[in-house]
Amino acid sequence: MSMTSLILASSLLIIPIIVSYKQQLDLTKDMIISVLRAIIQLLIVGYILTFVFEAKQPLIILMLVFIILINAALNTRKRVPNVVNHGFWISLFALVISTSITMTILILTGALQFKVNEIIPVSGMVISNAMVAINIGYTNLEKAFTQQRMEIEAKLSLGALPHLASKTQIQDTMKMAVIPTIDSAKTLGIVALPGMMSGLIIAGTPPLQAIRFQIMVTFMLLSATMIATMIAIFISYKQFYNKRHQLKI
């Protein structure tokens, strides 16, 4: 693809900007910033990856994964519910655990090799999906506690402990966070030909091999999003209560 084609393709952005403006969605600024950020970030990463892909030391690979983790955790801060303290650390912890478990299993089973050109893209996918799930989780957790405050208090009034009083809200929040990943898995191949698989095919990999890789990616995304959401939500929901098990919101 030539640079001219890419610039012309950017005209696609006009549609969401017009829709946002007409419908007063107040998303125009966010959209422009996100696109500019994406361009700058990808350009920088492109240069870094060119250099890094020549690196063989495990320490450099781990350092890069850690940088991705920190960036992802930083990106969840805006969605952390108001009553929750240390949101960055909770997200980082959830992301580190979910990524470590998923990547370790993939490496131990031989699905992945500990090579920079395999670890970096795959861990990037895992972390990115887990980050999105955590963000959805945070947003819905706050909404659930605010909107269903009366139900939670009615349960507390009967003598329920916080985990039982807010069980429904926690379950709903976790479902909402993981459903996008499940839904996208359901439509793989029928609706979506995912990026990694398409990329491999475009790059000349035989389709069956690309599909094997994509199946692995689906497994790992389901596992990572579930683990990350569970950790982030289970640590966060407790902060909606004080020591007397009273709601703080």
């Binding site: 009615a154 349960k155 507390l156 009034s157 402990l161 429904t168 098990h245």
Partner: peptide, 29 residues
């Protein structure tokens, strides 16, 4: 707190029911 609230039990102004059925509510305690 839970011990206290089982002794001094509050029935709020706006009734909020749990789950879907009568059983979901009466079995909660």
């Amino acid at each position: 707190p839970e011990q206290l609230r089982q002794t001094v039990s509050y029935c709020p102004q706006t009734p909020t029911l749990f789950g879907e059925t009568i059983f979901d509510n009466v079995s909660f305690p």
